[in-house]
Design a binder for these strands. Structure first.
Lengths: 211, 211
DNA sequence: GTTGAAATTAGTACGAA
DNA sequence: TTCGTACTAATTTCAAC
């Protein structure tokens, strides 16, 4: 079914506190920060960088792993060098009540790197890596379009990936503030109307693609 | 400028062959496959699983690292447990010739996990992780909307992340074939019209958000 | 490209603060 | 809980084949 954890609606989780599991303190966060930048660092070196004993580092490291806060360690690979120079986003409209089938089909597509269910005019976004544009086309027309659960697709290509951070942590927000741009409380010059938030129902009603 | 490599138009790169750098053979690919699943495996264990000697494994491992094919090792963190339960995608329309400013501002936003330049009706997609929806709202209205380079935004929320694969490799495609669904050469029942490919110019002309 | 042996480092266990 | 130490096992390096 789902490979990774859900992000569902409940937005009330205070940073650092988890529903059920480990209570994360500042040292845990520091460990995560180092580990996402260098997943192969030794626990001894980790202990030194964090400023705790080796034994403590081992305990915390294992706890984070056992708890599931650290899901896995992975190598980030340069897909261009590996032979997959084309990245595309495919926005999919899914026939309601056929989600199970859609997910099952996705599991059989190894070229899919990421898939998320979204609000907005589409229901899902999938990211694929391919050797060339023809392969993307073939994937969309031959494989995706043949899934009954897929009602419509919209494909865009990625021209450049500006940045990818291993994983964002709550502590990152604290670094955002000390930057430029003073507090600016209730400024009148916020260009409202520039932005738009698209809820699930709203978006889907606004843009009926077919049927 | 750019944190990660470009995916630009040149789609003629044969799988396994890289423009300038290492020539990747089947053993290199196998190493990458193992490493993306277990980034902390020892080189000794890696050698055994691949079926080569330790020294060979060390040589290849170092070559892949030096070449940049392996960009880094990282820990995948459960953002919900870490306190960031909300994920959103923000599609941004960028004022032309202000890309440099846009990129510079992005670098100052640690809560942004991913940013890609796309074809289609928007120019860029950014993915953010936040503790709650209010923070997403604040980020879009206070921080993004204040960037002159940002012409318009459209935000959707991620309800569920169905899957994330560490990194897709060319060898993944070979696993896709032996699945169900026989070759089906030139079948007449492909539901054409379901899918849509959106080029940059086309999309932008179709949906002019503002001036 | 492989094997084997030495040096280093990692991981574990335990008592003390 | 956390720290420090000592012990054991594994990994990495370097050599010769």
């Amino acid at each position: 079914m789902s490979d990774i954890s859900r992000n569902g609606g409940g937005g009330g989780t205070p940073p650092g506190r988890i529903g059920i599991g480990l209570e994360l303190d500042a040292i845990h966060m520091k460990i995560l920060e180092i580990l996402r930048e260098n997943g192969r660092i030794s626990v001894a070196a980790l202990a030194e960088r964090v400023g705790i004993s080796r034994a403590n580092a081992y305990t915390r490291f294992e706890a984070l792993r056992a708890d599931g806060t650290i899901k896995r360690f992975t190598a980030e690979i340069d897909h261009v060098r590996a032979g997959l120079g084309i990245t595309a986003l495919i926005f999919v409209t899914v026939r309601q009540q056929m989600w199970k089938q859609f997910r099952a089909e996705l599991a059989r597509m190894p070229e899919v790197e990421y898939c998320a269910i979204t609000t907005g005019q589409h229901d899902a976004m999938i990211q694929v890596r391919m050797a060339d544009v023809a392969e993307v086309h073939a994937m969309v027309t031959d494989r995706l379009a043949n899934i009954p659960a897929v009602k419509a697709t919209e494909t865009v290509f990625i021209l450049d990936e500006v940045l990818r951070r291993p994983y964002v942590l709550p502590s990152d927000r604290d670094q955002a503030r000390p930057s430029r741009r003073p507090p600016q409380e209730s400024q009148g010059d916020v260009p409202l109307g520039k932005m738009r938030f698209v809820g699930a129902a709203e978006g889907r009603a606004a843009l009926r693609k077919d049927t």
